[in-house]
Simulated scan of single mutants.
Amino acid sequence: MTGAAGQDGMGGHEEGNNVKVLVTGAAGFLGGYVVEELLARGYTVVGLDNHSKYGQPARTLPAHERWTSVVGDAADKDLLYELAADCDHFIANAALIGGVRYMKDLAYDILATNNRLVSAAAEVGMRRHGEKLRKVTYVSSSMVYEGHPGTGFREGNELEVAPPSTAYGFQKLAVEYYAKAAWSQYGLRYTIVRPFNCVGAGERHAPHVSTSSDEQQRMVRGHVIPDFVERALRRENPFRVLGDGQQYRTFTYARDMARGIVLAMESEAAFNEDFNLSGRHGCTIAELARFVWDRVNPGEPISIQYEQAFPNDVRIRKPDTRKASEVLGFVADTPLDVMVDEVVAWVRETEFAAADQ
């Protein structure tokens, strides 16, 4: 695994089983990678998830003596308080999220549900912080920079531009205000991490069906790489791309992202700080479509059909990551082909195994 125990960061492997971490959203796509990273570094982990998105964990974690999985609602403050007992760290990762389609269809649910989740995390953290709990690490989002017009946006710029226009982006900015308010009033220390375009195995078809028949046809999955992979495996040609294809994204391997989150959790220099966590490799969406097609269907020509973009589609998402590098020692260099190949293998296994037999 990337970021083996004790390789970089502070305290995980050396402290071993004496350090206990509570992770909410532990059965989700990113949460599963975070749990694996924590276990590899020697932590004892308690994971909470209500399985609301997929019905079952996105990726099944093997049995482990330092791993406890609990099925329940991360907005349940009494349950959360009980699970946080004797915890040194709390990674508040639970959120209602599902890509750009969810942002449009479930705007109110995203706002209301995620506010309940973050308020529960902050309140339980405040009640437990006089005990062993050192801080809460909050998982925010790159969408806090939704209103930024250019590239290279860095920590602090989210306060200098217009607030996000989407309910999801606005709520993720609210997560950061919750963190700062809990520190200001109650002294609960925090770290904020902002993932950028995380890529890996684990995203399945969520049970949500778009309320618009037109929208149902636009994306088969919530995020662009697994969506492109599934449609490439189905040999969709012409290959549909939303917008003009010139939107730019950087992509981050999920194992790298999990390593960055754990580094941020561990570091004493990260107290009351925020970090952009992003890979170094990026491309336009049109380039991505061709790249994915070539990985799945090498040598076959592709014709791209450009369609109307989703509302509020961010044109350029290319952050400045120097702070994470300088403070945490975090650099994400996994190339795009490794990320895409892992998603291809995952989609083949979960969606195409029966058809291939």
Rank of each mutant, 00 (worst) to 15 (best):
M1N: 12
T2D: 12
G6W: 04
G9T: 09
G12E: 11
E14R: 13
V21D: 09
G25K: 01
A27Q: 12
F29K: 00
V34W: 00
V35L: 07
V35Y: 01
V35W: 05
V35A: 06
A40M: 08
R41G: 09
G47C: 10
G47Q: 08
L48C: 00
D49W: 04
N50C: 06
N50V: 02
N50A: 01
K53T: 15
G55R: 03
A58T: 14
A58C: 15
L61A: 08
H64S: 10
R66A: 12
W67C: 05
D76V: 05
L83H: 12
D86P: 07
D88K: 10
D88P: 07
H89W: 10
F90N: 00
A95N: 08
L96H: 10
I97R: 03
R101L: 13
Y108F: 13
A112T: 14
N114S: 04
R116D: 14
A120F: 03
M126W: 11
R127Y: 09
R128G: 00
H129I: 04
G130L: 11
E131G: 06
E131V: 06
E131Y: 03
E131M: 11
K132V: 05
K132L: 13
L133H: 09
K135L: 08
V136G: 10
Y145Q: 03
T151G: 08
R154S: 14
R154C: 12
E158G: 01
E160A: 14
P163W: 08
P163E: 13
T166L: 06
K172M: 08
K172P: 03
K172N: 07
E176S: 05
Y177C: 11
Y177D: 14
Y178V: 13
K180Y: 02
A182Q: 05
S184Q: 14
Q185A: 13
Y186T: 02
I192L: 14
I192G: 02
F196I: 04
F196M: 10
C198T: 15
V199Q: 02
G200S: 04
E215D: 15
Q216T: 13
Q217M: 13
G222M: 06
H223Q: 12
I225Q: 06
P226Q: 04
F228D: 04
V229F: 02
V229Q: 02
F239Y: 08
L242S: 13
D244T: 06
G245M: 05
Q246G: 09
Y248I: 11
R249M: 04
T250A: 12
T252Q: 06
Y253K: 01
Y253D: 15
D256P: 00
A258P: 02
R259W: 06
G260W: 01
L263W: 06
L263T: 01
A264W: 00
M265Q: 11
E266A: 09
S267L: 04
E268Y: 09
A269W: 04
A270T: 05
D274I: 10
F275D: 03
S278K: 09
G279V: 05
R280S: 14
H281C: 02
H281G: 03
G282P: 08
A286P: 01
R290V: 12
R295Q: 15
P301R: 00
Q305W: 03
N312T: 07
V314Y: 02
P319F: 02
P319V: 09
V331E: 14
V331K: 12
T334P: 03
L336A: 02
V340M: 01
D341C: 01
V344S: 05
W346A: 11
V347T: 11
E349R: 13
T350L: 05
F352N: 07
A353V: 11
Q357N: 13
